[in-house]
Each structure stands twice: as structure tokens, then as C-alpha cells.
Amino acid sequence: MKLKVEGLNSHYGPAHILFDIGFEVGEGEVVALLGRNGAGKSTTFRSIVGLVAQRTGRIMFEGKDVSVRPTHEIVREGLGYVPEERRIFTDLTVEENLEVGRQPKRPNAPHWTREKLFALFPNLGEMKNRSGGRMSGGEQQMLTIARTLMGNPSLVLLDEPSEGLSPKIVEQMVDAILTMKKEGVSIVVSEQNLHFARLISDRAYIIERGRICFGGTMAELDARPDIRDAHLSL
């Protein structure tokens, strides 16, 4: 088991956001976390990497309990995180953005070099010295994924990678994610776009009002339109 989350509860101040969240990600799997806005997808990711201060529960990553460790240590274990809204460093160049993400090689994870990343995202290779602020939204989304891959993660949490992107860029994103999977990176992707999720995921969980209310393969989800309609409000 790559990642196992058990009984995760999170609070922001007085507000209880996540209730006993539990899910698993197998080696080399792509798992989708589906749910509408405010359902708790981003909070789940932020809690896993320790960016939410008030959290309880158990997070096992590659057999190690990382639930009480600080963010940078969790990430250094090989658990990469790509936030929503991209959050690239707009004042830094593409190269420098990648440098911030650079971490040593890891034995049990694919090793990414700049060259390999520029092959995965050819646009980036053409603008190595451009500052992040002068890139389009699609290019920024590629950079934010490339930046996380520089840390040679064995698992990546991808928060809403298709949000705000043109249909064509979203299709490129599908290819990139499938390549990452082929290289051996396990992926958890949070999404609202079911079309997109279906193209990349092996399994899916649905999160609603801070609780997991469905878990199964994409085929099982398709077989349950009642669940899909109730929680994803398509």
C-alpha cells in the first residue's frame, strides 16, 4: 500500500471540516477524489501534507506514520503535493521554479531531471528563462507539476489540475498524467470534471460534506448513476 489514510479529522478554527476520512492508494495507481466545491477535497490534501494545523487521524505513507510530521519532512519522504490555483513563483524563472522543487534522488521512485521534464512538457523547455508571471495558465499548470516532480516523489497529490484550463490543455494534462503513471508515480487527483477523471483514474472516492461516501472502481461508479447524481450533481 502506497498511502493509507485512516480516521482523518480536520478543523479550521471552530469549524469541523473533515470527518473520519479514510482511503487507500495502491502502488502505481491513479485514484480520483471527486466532490463538489467545498466538499473537502483540498482540505484533505492539505491535511495529508500537514498544511492544516488542526488534524487528527493516521496517515501511513509507504508504511511510515507521517501524521504528525511537519510539511517539509512529509514531502521529503517522497509525497509530492501540487496545490490548486497553481501557485507558481511568478518572480522566478522556469529554471528557478524547478530549482526550488529539487530534492535528492530516491531509491524507490522515478528520478526526474530537467531534461526529462522538458520532454514531458515541451512548452517549458522553450521558455527556461521566462519568469513565471509571464506564462499562460496552462503553462503555469505544467510548471507546477514539473516543479513537484523535481522532488522525485513516489506519490503525487494533484489538486484540481484541470480547473480553469482550456479543453485542449486539459487533454495535454491527461497525457502528462498517464506518462507519470507509466513512469511509476502513484497519483491522487482531486476533480470536479468527471470526464477528465474518467480518462485517467483507476479508482475513485466521492467526498461530500467532509465525509467519504463512495469508493470503488470507475466502472463501479458508472454503474451507480444514483450516487453520481446525488453527490456530483451532474
Binding site: 484541470s162 482550456s166 485542449k168 487533454e171 491527461v174 470534471n193 480518462l199
Partner: peptide, 11 residues
């Protein structure tokens, strides 16, 4: 070509 793509990701 420049925007809609193959139309895989919308209804």
C-alpha cells in the same frame, strides 16, 4: 485546433 481539442473533457 487551438482550443476545443478532441472534445474529450466536456459533455
Amino acid at each position: 485546433a487551438v482550443y476545443l481539442g478532441e472534445g474529450l473533457v466536456y459533455d
